[in-house]
Amino acid sequence: AVSDRLIGRKGVVMEAISPQNSGLVKVDGETWRATSGTVLDVGEEVSVKAIEGVKLVVEKLE
């Protein structure tokens, strides 16, 4: 699937994400809805860990 190529890629949070609410991330110039187990603020760099349906699962870049 086209989304599989995104796993491991870096992105930037465009709309804040929390465990309760999905947000938006931009990866390779495309905007995706994303979820995370932690709070991520706009502008934070993330990496794509998995894909669930049409949402990316991301975590903060260390």
Rank of each mutant, 00 (worst) to 15 (best):
V48F: 01
R5P: 14
I17L: 05
G37R: 12
M14T: 14
R5Y: 15
E59H: 08
D4T: 09
R33H: 15
V54A: 14
R9I: 04
T31Y: 15
G43R: 08
G37M: 13
V27H: 01
K49I: 11
A16P: 14
E52T: 09
G37S: 09
E62Y: 14
V54N: 11
V25L: 02
G37K: 13
V39S: 12
L6I: 08
L24A: 10
V58Q: 00
K10N: 09
G23L: 03
D4L: 04
V57W: 11
N21I: 13
E45P: 10
S3D: 15
W32C: 05
L6Q: 03
E59V: 15
T38R: 09
V25R: 00
G53L: 04
L61G: 07
R5D: 14
E62H: 15
V46P: 01
S18M: 07
T35H: 06
K55P: 02
I17C: 05
V48N: 00
I7E: 03
V39F: 14
E59I: 09
L61F: 11
S47H: 14
D41Q: 15
A34V: 02
G43S: 07
I51M: 09
L24E: 07
A1R: 03
K55R: 09
V12G: 02
D4E: 12
K10R: 10
A50P: 01
G37A: 13
L56Y: 02
G11P: 01
M14N: 06
D41E: 13
L24Y: 11
T31A: 09
L40A: 04
G29M: 09
L40D: 01
E62C: 07
V2K: 05
E59N: 07
G23N: 01
V42S: 06
K26R: 11
V25T: 03
E44M: 10
V13W: 01
G23R: 01
D28N: 09
T35E: 11
T38P: 02
K60A: 06
Q20C: 10
E52L: 10
T38V: 13
A16F: 09
E59P: 00
L24C: 08
I7D: 02
R5K: 14
G11K: 00
G23E: 00
V27L: 07
D4F: 02
G23C: 02
K55G: 14
I17W: 02
A34R: 00
T35V: 12
G8P: 02
S36Y: 02
L56S: 01
G53P: 03
K10E: 08
T35C: 05
K60M: 05
K60L: 09
A34G: 05
S36C: 05
L61I: 11
S18V: 12
R5H: 12
Q20D: 14
G11V: 03
S3L: 08
A1S: 13
S22R: 04
V39I: 13
I7C: 04
V58T: 02
K55V: 14
V57L: 10
R33A: 15
